[in-house]
């Protein structure tokens, strides 16, 4: 039982390490200075209502680019490891019930529309590219569950994914050339605060992120399903 003892000691140290979060970090009375700058300057500077979107897309845009790259690498790894088996076994696919198939035909357009709505309105309402992409991926997942013999067009996914990634970087460089810095959204007019076509390039960037995330997650699910 030496192993158990070691585990318990490790966990006790972890708790001691995290304990200052409970006792010493007082609940914030006010925003930190960085956040204060973002909150005060964000709406006027970038024209985005949703400040989380402003931070994700513009102020911390480089981080988001990195995270999308991590997502791409993980997807590529999954595709690499699950690729082989896909060709040989394609029998014994059972069909879903009539209820599921009819419900899917009814719901799928609405789910896709909701996904597009979420990432187009990322700068106005809660939500954005990541959430919209995930909603689209869940819609496609429903389709894959209802009709298990369906073939997802891999080359279409590939093109959506790589084109949106490329345009994301191109827009970042346009920001560098025409406005203040990499991924700066102000090279397009900011427009009226609170309208759909406002906040410069933020809706475009977030739509590209949404397409990219959606295509990547559909790729993960497709690989997982085809390997069954």
């Amino acid at each position: 039982m030496v192993k158990q003892l070691f585990i318990i000691i490790t966990l006790v140290f972890l708790v001691i390490m995290l304990l200052p979060l409970m006792t010493e970090v007082k609940p914030f009375e006010d925003l930190s200075l960085v956040s204060q700058k973002y909150v005060n300057a964000g709406p006027d500077e970038l024209g985005s209502q949703n400040l989380v979107t402003a931070v994700v897309v513009t102020y911390r845009g480089l981080d988001t680019l990195g995270e999308v790259a991590v997502l791409f690498i993980a997807t590529a790894g999954i595709g690499f490891f699950l690729r082989k088996k896909a060709v040989e076994e394609k029998d014994m696919k059972s069909k879903a019930s009539v209820l599921v198939r009819t419900g899917t035909a009814l719901l799928l357009p609405l789910i896709l529309l909701l996904g597009v709505y979420i990432f187009l309105h990322g700068h106005l309402t809660p939500g954005g590219g990541f959430q919209g992409g995930v909603v689209i991926a869940s819609g496609i997942l429903l389709l894959m569950l209802a009709q298990s013999d369906i073939k997802i067009n891999i080359s279409l996914l590939y093109w959506i994914e790589s084109l949106s990634g490329a345009f994301y970087v191109i827009i970042g460089i346009l920001g560098l050339a025409l406005a203040g810095g990499f991924l700066d959204n102000r090279f397009l007019p900011l427009g009226d605060f609170g309208r759909l076509f406002s906040a410069g390039a933020i809706p475009i960037i977030y739509s590209l992120i949404g397409l990219k995330v959606g295509a990547e997650l559909v790729g993960i699910l497709n690989n997982m399903q085809r390997s069954q």
């Binding site: 989380v52 979420i118 809660p126 990541f130 959430q131 995930v134 869940s138 997650l217 699910l221």
Partner: peptide
Amino acid sequence: PDVAMTEAAIGSGLTTIV
């Protein structure tokens, strides 16, 4: 609410399916 949307869609939906 942004985080809540992501977590509801990913954490309970896609992760479980995977």
